[in-house]
Amino acid sequence: MPLLSVKNLAVRFETHHGTVRAVDGISFDMEEGETLGLVGESGSGKSVTNLALLGLIPSPPGVMTGQVHFDGQEISALSEPELRKVRGNRISMIFQDPMTSLNPLLTIGRQMTEVLELHKGKSHSEALRLAAVGLGEVGLSEPESRLAQYPHELSGGMRQRVMIAMGLLCEPRLLLADEPTTALDVTIQAQILELMAEVQRRHGTAIILVTHDLGVVAGTADRVAVMYAGRIVEEGPTHQLFKNPHHPYTQGLLSSVPRLDSDTSQKMSSIPGTPPDLAEMPPGCAFAPRCPNVQVECKSERPELLASGVPGRSNACPLYASPDSAEADSAEARP
């Protein structure tokens, strides 16, 4: 049985401009110790997916439907007090901006000990000791004295380390990381990614890594799910998906990422147009207005995410079904 199983998860918001379907029926499974990269552009629903998994969608205006099974328990059916026992304990979350997600009025020590006292029933002194160990593990110097400091006394990279240490204190089975390095500089990003990989090796934590940065996903994820306008349009093992993307959106996205080894005499390739307004979705495939190989039927029927004939891969473009390329793909997958 998978560690996490998401079935038909949907989140909609009732707004003045109509119903916004931020997440529009997505399903995926995750195994123990695995890293899933959830990628997409802004507004594609990747962050809302993460929030929904922990029941953090404000209602109203949000409405969440679908099932989330975690570790044999249906957490989407839990009450708020029961969910609180899961959050920060068996599933924890790292947010994008460590400046706004740490409480500026409390010391690092106070914020870190809270989870341990609450979930594990530790005494305050024991919790402080464990918090210091946690800070040491994420590479902060002088962890004991850091506990007495306030968030503003730390740099961005250090604050993100504190967030990670805090997220790992209760040794969660699943870590939801929402753009954990986006606010950081590249040299600091490299440190944090290295740290997360090491933590995962040590504790066997499964990670959902939400990011718009395909370079970050390429280096860290085992599998990748690409989201567009609230849906997963393609999913598969990282190496295969990058080497041979099936969905036209994935293809466009991958080729528009600037690379340090691309040909600068050529124009950068881009996807024409802009993502659709979620309150006024076109009928049919959401990507159809920007798709280079759009067909008549794309504009009327909304395609489902289906297994694409290659083991472990699925794809929501009905035009991709050619057996030749499927064969080529499995040939590539063989060592």
């Binding site: 740099s155 961005g156 040299t187 490299a190 370079g215 390429a218 280096g219 990282t238 080497k243 340090l260």
Partner: peptide
């Protein structure tokens, strides 16, 4: 700085040498 830029390519990204700077 150059070695810290992530490549959108799993094969390059997981095999190349990287200089990870210490500190802030």
């Amino acid at each position: 700085l150059l070695s810290a830029v992530p490549y959108p390519d799993p094969e390059i990204e997981r095999t190349r040498e990287r200089i990870v700077l210490r500190g802030d």
